[in-house]
Each structure stands twice: as structure tokens, then as C-alpha cells.
Design a protein around this nucleic acid. Structure first.
Lengths: 137, 137
DNA sequence: TACACCAGTATCCTTTAGAATACTAGTATC
DNA sequence: GATACTAGTATTCTAAAGGATACTGGTGTA
């Protein structure tokens, strides 16, 4: 019995896809990188404390680490203004635009997913899978 | 000094985006969910051991857990055939097509990213940021 | 008879992400 | 003088992700 439709050709394409997606996951890993990019894209340049407010429940340690990562990968820039006390402003770089497609695909999917869950829980009245607690609260 | 371009309007849009992307990250979390969907999409239905070979270095424990998660979220189906020994085949559901845009956006980005790293290391001869060790090896 | 394959499970372990809490120095405000 | 804000850092902790290794029972093959 042959359960597989694989061929050498599709296997090669598959390897390329897996590699590329893995690289992307490696760079955009964790809970916060995309949300930070989204915040700076949609709300404009922001200071440290303002970002913390927008993102909600991120601790300064994590925010600091994530911002450094993003700066290293050239997604954002960090500017220090010599006010008293100092003002530090984070902005997205033009390069950040390259993840626009990823973000909008994920945004669309997330919206559809929530709608789907609402529909299925209306029908089944069940606790749905794949949904954080607060969404059903 | 006003460093921010934010308004109530953009703040609201931002909240919606953050929420939606967070939901998506919640469902597609971890290292393996997207790679498994990609494998089953591009290589067709596969058995457990075959999937393990395609994915490379995933242990049976992790693969088993990820497959259960994906089945719960209706991304894949699991069929058991009464051969001796039993044959178990995993296939993507039509619903999996809904993440097609996410995957292709991530695939494109990953390919561009690798190219960018190659270019910049050609120029600077430096160890680049944001790249797993094996890529530079 | 010895071995390998199948689809996992069981157990143990390490690594990492991320949360909680407390703290810094310089200034402005009450 | 006490407090709060600035942009973080330091320390400690827990929970989760994921890897390593060994094992199962039933079968087919050398």
C-alpha cells in the first residue's frame, strides 16, 4: 500500500520550505518580537515605558532583552535624546516592512480563528481547543 | 517634545492587531507545528516514521505531542489502517489551507533573509546576527 | 534465531522563556 | 523633604519546551 504522494521533486521543495520557515521562526521567536514590531509600526516611535504600556504585561527585563534582539537584527533603531532625564525612543527601520506580509497574514488568520471559535462554541456550547482562557472569559 | 504619532484611532487598530497575532501565535506555537503542516502539505499524507524522517531531528515523544495538538485544532487527521503491524497515516485537513498565506509569507521572508545574510557577510566578513550556527557552517 | 520495523510511551534531564520583585541615579513635582 | 517618573539592571524563580534514552508487542525478514 502506498500512502504517500511524495516524489523526489516535492521532497526537494519541501526541504527548501522547511529550511526557510525554520530560519524565519528562529529570528522571530518568542511571544514578543512580532507584537513589538506591530506596536511600533501602528503607533509610531515609542519610548520604553510607553511600549510597556501598549504591550500590556511585559516586564522591563524582557522588553529590554527583546528590544536588543530586534536592534541587532535591524528591525528597530534606538535613539537617545539628551533631555533630563534622558529620553530613549525606539522606531522601526524600513527593513521591518519586510515582515509586513507575515504580520498581516497572521492578523487575518487570528481574526478568522476567533470567529470560528465563537461559531463553534455557539453551536456546541463546548470549551474549545486552541484558545487562551481570557478569550472565553 | 512629542515622540509619538499615536492617536486613539491607531491605538485601537493596534490593539486589534496585537490580539489577533497573539491568538495566532498561541495556536501555532513552538518549533514544529508549521514544519509538520508544511511537510504534510507538500509531501502528501505520511506515516509517523516517515514524518520523523522528513522533519529530521524530532523525537517520537515530541512528534506525538505535536500531532495530537494539531489534530485537536483540526489541522490534521489521523487514520489507522488495520494492517499488520498497524499503519497510521496523518493528513492535512482542508482547514489547514487557511494557514497557507502565513506559511508562504514566512517562506519568502526566510529565503530573503538568508540571501541578505550571505550578502552582508560577503561584504563585511563578519559573523552575522540572527542566524543558526549550521547556516554559516 | 536474531534482527529490524511499526507507532508510539515512559522516564529523566537540560535549556530556555518569561514572570516577580527589588533596585539604581537624576530630575521634577507636590 | 517625600514622592514619582525616566530607562532600564539584577536577582530569583517557575513553568514549559524539548532532547536523550530506553522500552513495548506484534510482525516480517535474513
Amino acid at each position: 500500500m502506498n500512502f504517500s504522494t511524495s516524489s523526489e521533486h516535492s521532497a526537494e521543495i519541501c526541504r527548501v520550505s522547511l529550511d526557510a520557515v525554520r530560519d524565519t521562526l528562529y529570528v522571530l521567536n518568542g511571544k514578543w518580537k512580532l507584537p513589538i514590531i506591530i506596536s511600533l509600526t501602528e503607533q509610531g516611535p515609542q519610548r520604553f515605558a510607553a511600549l510597556q504600556r501598549i504591550l500590556g504585561d511585559i516586564t522591563p527585563k524582557i522588553l529590554s532583552k527583546e528590544l536588543k534582539d530586534l536592534e541587532l537584527n535591524e528591525f528597530i533603531t534606538r535613539e537617545v535624546f539628551p533631555t533630563k532625564p534622558v529620553t530613549v525612543v525606539y522606531s522601526i527601520t524600513p527593513y521591518s516592512a519586510s515582515v509586513k506580509d507575515i504580520i498581516s497574514a497572521m492578523r487575518e488568520w487570528g481574526l478568522q480563528h476567533k470567529q470560528r471559535l465563537l461559531n463553534s462554541s455557539r453551536k456546541k456550547g463546548a470549551a474549545a481547543a486552541g484558545i487562551p482562557a481570557e478569550v472565553t472569559a
